[in-house]
C-alpha cells in the first residue's frame, strides 16, 4: 500500500507543484523516486517528529501542501500537539501519512502498533481522516487529498496488502463492496477489511449472506452519511484499533439507537501478546474466523 501511495503522490506532484514530501528518516525503498524527481519538494527532517510537523506547518503556511510520512505512532501521537496547534488550528494543508496501520508491523512490537491514532486525531478541528482498505483505495485517497488540501491524516498499511475490492474509495460514507442482499452489514476500515471479505465468502457458503462496507473517511463525522446502514437490523464493525474513540464507537454514535451493533476491535490486552499481524488478528478476534463467529452469534 505504501508503494501505491508514493506512486500516486508522484502522479499528483507532477501536476500539482505545491505538493511537498517530508519524511522522518523513514521510507527506505519507498520514497526515493519522489526525492529523485522532486528534490526541491522533498525533505528528510531526521528522527524528530515534533520539528518535522512544525516545519511542515511552516512550509504549508507559505503555500505548499505538505505530506509528512513516517511509521504509525511517530508522525501522529509523538507530535500530536503540533498537529493540533500548528496544523489544525491554523487550518493548514498538511497531510500526515502513517504507514503501518493497526498491527501491520506485527512482530516488531507494540511500539510500532498503530491502534490509538484514530481516537487521538478524530477530535481535532478541521481534520479529515482517510483510512483506505487496499492499494486502490489508497490511490484514490491521495488523489482526493491533492484536490482537497486541508489538515488531514492518511492511515495506510505497509506492503503486500491484497486488493480487497475494485471500487474507488467513497468519501461520503460507507461504500458497499460485497453485496449478498444480507441482513447483516459488516463495516470495516483499513486493510483488515480483507478479513471481512474472506468471512463474507465463508458465510455465503454456509447460507448466511452478509453485505460488506468499506468506511474510508472517518472524519469529520458530519461529512459521513451512514444512512445506508440503517437498512440493516444488525451491524458488525471491524477495525484494527482499540474500542475507545474508534470506528465502532463512532458508528454507534452516528446510528443512534441502532438495535444490534457489535464492534470487533483491538483489545487492550493485546499489547501483552506477540506475533505477526495474522497471529495478532487471530488472538485479538479480528480475523475472518472471528467475524464468522460474530455474525453467526448475532443472527
Amino acid at each position: 500500500m505504501r508503494t501505491a501511495f508514493i506512486e500516486q503522490l508522484l502522479v499528483e506532484a507532477r501536476r500539482n507543484t505545491r505538493i511537498f514530501l517530508v519524511v522522518g528518516d523513514l521510507g527506505y525503498s519507498v520514497v526515493e523516486p519522489f526525492a529523485a524527481e522532486f528534490p526541491d519538494r522533498f525533505l528528510n527532517a531526521g528522527v524528530a517528529e515534533q520539528n518535522m510537523t512544525g516545519v511542515a506547518a511552516g512550509l504549508a503556511s507559505e503555500g505548499y501542501h505538505v505530506f509528512t510520512y513516517s511509521i504509525g505512532n511517530f508522525p501522529t501521537l509523538r507530535c500530536l500537539e503540533q498537529i493540533r496547534n500548528d496544523v489544525c488550528y491554523h487550518r493548514l494543508p498538511v497531510t500526515v501519512v502513517a504507514v503501518g496501520a493497526g498491527m501491520s508491523y506485527g512482530n516488531q512490537g507494540y511500539s510500532h502498533h498503530c491502534v490509538q491514532d484514530i481516537a487521538c486525531l478524530r477530535g481535532l478541528p478541521f481534520m479529515t481522516i482517510l483510512s483506505p482498505a487496499d492499494p486502490g483505495e489508497a490511490r484514490t485517497c491521495v488523489r482526493w487529498l491533492s484536490e482537497n488540501p486541508s489538515p488531514s491524516y492518511l492511515r495506510i498499511g505497509k506492503a503486500g496488502e491484497p486488493v480487497v475490492h475494485g471500487c474507488e474509495a467513497s468519501f461520503a460514507g460507507p461504500c458497499k463492496i460485497v453485496d449478498q442482499s444480507g441482513d447483516v452489514a459488516i463495516v470495516g476500515t483499513g486493510p483488515v477489511l480483507a478479513e471481512a471479505v474472506a468471512a463474507s465468502a465463508q458465510l455465503r457458503e454456509a447460507g448466511v449472506p452478509v453485505d460488506v462496507f468499506s468506511l474510508t473517511r472517518l472524519s469529520p463525522a458530519e461529512a459521513i452519511d451512514v444512512g445506508v446502514l440503517r437498512e440493516y437490523r444488525r451491524v458488525v464493525t471491524l477495525e484494527e484499533h482499540v474500542a475507545a474513540g474508534g470506528v465502532g464507537e463512532m458508528l454507534r454514535s452516528l446510528l443512534g439507537g441502532h438495535r444490534d451493533l457489535r464492534s470487533l476491535c483491538v483489545p487492550q490486552s493485546l499489547c501483552m501478546e506477540s506475533g505477526s499481524q495474522a497471529a495478532l488478528r487471530r488472538i485479538g478476534g479480528l480475523d475472518a474466523a472471528a467475524i464468522v463467529r460474530t455474525v453467526n452469534d448475532v443472527i
Binding site: L43, Q50, N51, T53, G54, V55, A56, A57, G58, L59, A60, S61, E62, G63, Y64, E81, Q82, N85, D86, Y89, H90
Partner: peptide
C-alpha cells in the same frame, strides 16, 4: 502564528525559512 504552548514557534519558523 498562534502560540501559547511553548516550543512550537521555532520549528514553524524553520518551515517558513526553508520555504
Amino acid at each position: 502564528f498562534s502560540t501559547g504552548s511553548l516550543g512550537h514557534g521555532l520549528p514553524f519558523g524553520c518551515g517558513k525559512a526553508l520555504a
